[in-house]
Amino acid sequence: MLLSASQESYETMMSLSLKLKHPQQNFSFIVTDKMTQVHWLRDKNLRDVLIHLHEWHLLVLHWIKANQAGQAASFFPTPYNWRTYGGLNQEFVLKHQETSLEQAKVLLAGSHKDMLELIETFSDEALFTKQYFTWTGTTTLGSYFVSSLPSHYDWAIKKMKYQLKADKSIG
């Protein structure tokens, strides 16, 4: 279920990305006064959205692999945590200002594939039993995959659908 939901959301998202009128990296998404959440202002274009997803995949991949290797690792790199990760998201945007849209698509496709392959190494019990791994704290490992794959893709789909609607209204 997690694998199929992740793949379906990914395919929907990438299909929508092809329909954007101005997907190039220097085109800014349309933002209105009602869009007060930070991500609407942070992600200026499709590249920023795709890179955001890719970098979150890398967070999950590095965290799991380190902990599996017996290296106690926090999910976020120092000094970030669940209250301050907004700064990390901004770092991702700045880090990739020279990344092209095509490079972003390739990076995301690769990390998406790596995430699906990693999921396949775990049983449903390992993925969805709370505290199955001590390093996941009070949540399940699967919840990290859900958050960074289908749920995160759904967030990107919402952004793209909004932009597609705006594209139609401006002709």
Rank of each mutant, 00 (worst) to 15 (best):
T36Y: 01
V49Y: 02
S100P: 01
Q25E: 15
S169K: 15
I64G: 09
E11Q: 14
E91A: 11
E98G: 09
Q163C: 03
H22I: 06
T12F: 07
S4W: 10
D124I: 02
L94G: 05
S151T: 10
G142N: 05
T32F: 13
G87D: 05
H57E: 06
S151M: 12
V93S: 03
L58G: 08
Y144S: 12
H54M: 05
T129Q: 12
N45K: 11
T36M: 00
F75V: 06
V60Q: 07
T136M: 00
D33S: 14
T99W: 00
I51S: 04
L18V: 08
E8H: 14
A69F: 08
D43L: 15
I51W: 03
I170A: 08
A69M: 11
V31E: 05
Q25S: 14
R47G: 02
I170L: 11
Q103H: 03
K44C: 00
T78S: 12
Y80Q: 02
T78V: 13
E8Q: 15
E117K: 11
A5I: 09
A109T: 04
L94V: 07
S147F: 08
D33Q: 13
P77R: 13
G137E: 09
V38W: 14
E98D: 14
P150T: 05
A5D: 14
L107I: 01
A72D: 10
Q97D: 04
H112Y: 03
I119T: 12
M1Y: 10
P23F: 03
K44G: 00
A166P: 05
K65T: 11
L2P: 01
Q24A: 13
M14Q: 12
H62Y: 11
Y85H: 13
T136R: 01
K159A: 11
T99R: 00
L20D: 01
T32S: 15
S4R: 15
E102M: 12
L50D: 00
V38G: 09
H112M: 01
L88Y: 02
H96P: 02
Q24K: 12
L2N: 02
K34N: 13
L61N: 00
S28L: 11
A166T: 13
L88I: 02
N45S: 15
A69T: 09
S6Y: 07
D48P: 01
I119A: 07
F128A: 01
A5F: 10
F128N: 03
P23T: 07
T121F: 06
G137D: 09
Q97M: 08
S4T: 15
